[in-house]
Write a protein that binds this DNA or RNA. Sequence first.
DNA 1: CCTGCATGTGACAACGTTGTCCAGGGCCTA
DNA 2: TAGGCCCTGGACAACGTTGTCACATGCAGG
Lengths: 345, 345
Amino acid sequence: MADNARHPESRYGNRPTMKDVAARAGVGLKTVSRVVNGEPGVTPDTERRVQEAIEALGFRRNDSARVLRKGRTASIGLVLEDLADPFYGPLSRAVEEVAREHGALLINGSSAEDADREQELVLAFCARRVDGLIVIPAGSDHRYLEPEIKAGVATVFVDRPAGRIDADVVLSDSFGGARAGVAHLIAHGHRRIGFIGDQPRIHTATERLRGYHAAMADADLPVDEAWVSLGSTSPERVRVAAESMLAGPDGVTALFAGNNRVTVTAVRVLAGRERPVALVGFDDIELADLLGITVISQDAAALGRTAAELLFRRLDGADGTPARVELPTALIQRGSGEVPPPAGG
Amino acid sequence: MADNARHPESRYGNRPTMKDVAARAGVGLKTVSRVVNGEPGVTPDTERRVQEAIEALGFRRNDSARVLRKGRTASIGLVLEDLADPFYGPLSRAVEEVAREHGALLINGSSAEDADREQELVLAFCARRVDGLIVIPAGSDHRYLEPEIKAGVATVFVDRPAGRIDADVVLSDSFGGARAGVAHLIAHGHRRIGFIGDQPRIHTATERLRGYHAAMADADLPVDEAWVSLGSTSPERVRVAAESMLAGPDGVTALFAGNNRVTVTAVRVLAGRERPVALVGFDDIELADLLGITVISQDAAALGRTAAELLFRRLDGADGTPARVELPTALIQRGSGEVPPPAGG
DNA sequence: CCTGCATGTGACAACGTTGTCCAGGGCCTA
DNA sequence: TAGGCCCTGGACAACGTTGTCACATGCAGG
């Protein structure tokens, strides 16, 4: 009765341990360990007896205890903004695939674009002693990670650079992509182009805005401040922003959407209008081909894969100054970006 | 030098432990533990000294060791088919959200629809001593989980029932949903309706097929075996299947797509045809409203939330026979399902 | 027959934390 | 002022595993 609850607070029904296996097999504890870990120096006969005991008891090695001894957990943490965002699915999957190749498990968390929650997650991962971290930053100050990094937790930032610390980062070329997208609209005759982006504290949002301004400047086009809108990507806000830019005779004739969520809402808004408006969006979208949406495409899976590979190189001992990798984007023409401005525009 | 590598195999740069903190603060080990865990019985002055030492050393509690002592890991494992599939993003996010409410972390893994890989992941999670498991089954035999469940690992299956063991499961009403979708097509005048689904070993695939047959039988319509195709959901296969069903004067006038991936390919195939073909798909898809795709929608987030809540009820001690929860689906009319058959059809 | 060596095996400490238990000191009451 | 209690703090064992080391045994060679 009493020994039926070695862990009063636990609901584990007393899982067998190596000690139990050893007792049943009539061997020493260490011999069981050797068998379980495939270490040499065990006679076939002993090994068989141990295997039988393992089988009979349903023993499974406790990796928590193992970790405590060995120091490595063979797991990495991934903090992203929202697992439900279609952009992060492929990224997450790519990270998982690389982790799997290295025999590591993936612990996931969504920050919901909240800096405190990001920190909370990251530190929880560190308490679990993950070997490494891949972080899509929500906050803009990552000095809280300094002791962790100093203690040996490899860390790679993705999609946006870390704030106030020097660390590895893998990015898409937001500036160049946006510049190319806006230049594409200009090349098709547009002179009044609107930009709707994410909140300005997000690095990619400002980079893309910078690309917009660069393209306009390249073509010597003025930018009316009413054509630019940064803020939440909620459908309501984006809708209001788009409609206000499009209103009136001097409204914009083309829109550049700063990310996938903005694009989706923009498509909905434009679908309800009579006069066609040109649209280029940052990020590709499923079924965009059928809807004829021209986009600047970034390869989310490549971002994840690159970051994870960099992380494991660090874990395998690669030293050196923090790397900054920038992946190219691609303009995919599907029609919406090739709509000319109206005759009088 | 020597003590700079207490763990020869570890890359942790000797993280400080409670012992180190205790030494620096000039208190006992247990006192540090009390402060870290917010236990009572520490004077404000002592607490301050300890906090300062923690701060100065960058100490962070090692949860691996904690877990070993306490028996609970405050983490749950989620095995699904593919994180990159848009259906699983919201599901995964919902699970994460519930886990967060219960102070647990989420460990993720994709089985890639492979039974061996599912088992490998599940057992790896068990070795980590996750408190609970949420599994979207890839395999059809889960007896390998019996010792784990007996040892107290709470387990909930989602989207498909477990194979050969009796366990909690949360499902969508695949049968009813498909039946309603096909009945909808019949109500709009179709008599020759094609069904393209996933591989027959997948429970939802056969359930949806069953729904298709039921709806046809309800209307006393014959089913030509050439109208039914189960198999891989790769675009190539689905395209071939769809084109062959649609070919000829006696080809089908409507298609029912068995899941989101099939629907996407079907839309692409149908977009290339002159004569309109009606389409209803299982699972909603982003932008389906703009494309006018009629779907049977299942609430992936609700599946995840329901499963996670059930899991935590089990962890909180809820006993009783395994539950089977079935969530309803909804028909969303958007146009593609309301296309009538051609005059002669 | 003893030495030397290889091989298989087990005893033991350690990993970092928490639960149990006990000691010392201050305070209250009789 | 003695006796009891509460409050704070620390010593110690235990969690389940692995690394180190030492002990048996067996066999070959001197």
